[in-house]
């Protein structure tokens, strides 16, 4: 379990990282927290010619509330997010997801940018981004652009990030007063990737759910919205929403469970998350 030889460059700025990417092309990989990348290198599942280390870039690890949005820099560690008052108050869904992400040692190193850029289909944060309808900030050779979460996930480990691009941060709508969030996942052991999980946001007023966004994870090649179920919930019919998952989701079998089990679990998760979304607040 020794990685194949690779070169190493320490980027001094986002522009520097982009320039290095442009220079080395497909053979380059960006190193953020390294919690997925280093394991794949050690197992020789990937053998980049050069690692571009982002850990020396200043200013990418801030959590700020600005213009009704929570901005999180790409290099912010999970552990910093876990302890952030801004996150707890204004992005409670992220706070709910945090304890489910791996283990403290991994949360100390892993970054939100790394997680969103890697886009593991069973990971928590990509699903939260999708449930919140957040935005992804991407820098590239032609400058900066912003991609909506709904347009960001393209396929298994594929996103809107191009070969010479770098994710620099994410923006999430700050939680309005009537907003509600739900999060649940089922994993065989605490900290494992989910067998199935659900991150949800909605507005709850007068006993009714509106603006429902359901993002399932661990059930497809990317985190997925369950749009028919969202509509059914907005219509106030939970049973119909659970039934609608049959058309919303088509989970492939994986090593832990088959698709039928995952689909069943998605229905259980939906009922539990809707309970969270609609329960009376203290």
């Amino acid at each position: 379990m020794k990685p194949a030889p690779f070169a190493y460059a320490k980027a001094r700025s986002v522009e520097d990282a982009i320039a290095l990417l442009a220079q080395h092309g497909e053979g380059a990989k960006l190193l953020a927290g390294g919690q997925s990348l280093i394991a794949t290198l050690n197992m020789r599942l990937s053998a980049p010619r050069i690692l571009i280390d982002l850990n020396g870039i200043a200013g990418l690890n801030s959590i700020t509330l600005k213009g009704g949005e929570v901005e999180i820099g790409a290099m912010t560690r999970h552990a910093e997010i876990e302890r952030s008052d801004v996150i707890r108050k204004h992005a409670p869904l992220i706070a709910m997801a945090m304890p489910h992400i791996a283990h403290p040692a991994i949360r100390n190193r892993g970054t939100i940018g790394g997680s969103i850029a890697f886009a593991d289909p069973a990971a928590e944060l990509p699903a939260c981004l999708l449930a919140l309808g957040g935005l992804v900030e991407i820098a590239g050779p032609k400058g900066k652009r912003t991609v909506k979460a709904d347009d960001y996930f393209k396929g298994l480990y594929e996103t809107a990030i191009g070969a010479c691009d770098m994710l620099t941060g994410i923006r999430l709508p700050a939680a309005p007063a009537a907003s509600r969030y739900g999060f649940a996942e089922l994993s065989r052991r605490h900290g494992d990737y989910a067998v199935a999980g659900l991150a949800a946001s909605a507005t709850f007023a007068s006993g009714k759910l509106t603006k429902v966004r359901l993002a399932f994870f661990g059930v497809d090649l990317t985190p997925v919205r369950a749009k028919a179920a969202e509509m059914a919930l907005a219509g106030g019919d939970l049973d119909k929403a659970v039934a609608a998952l049959a058309s919303d989701l088509d989970p492939p079998d994986d090593i832990q469970e088959n698709g039928a089990v995952k689909k069943h679990l998605a229905g259980v998760l939906l009922r539990r998350v809707v309970q969270q979304l609609t329960e009376t607040r203290a």
Binding site: M43, R188, R189, H190, G191, D192, Y193, I255
Partner: peptide, 16 residues
């Protein structure tokens, strides 16, 4: 062998 690694071969851990 499909799960020959520490992520996919589930050894029992303290939490469970």
């Amino acid at each position: 062998m499909l799960n020959g690694n520490m992520a996919d071969y589930l050894v029992p851990m303290a939490m469970e």
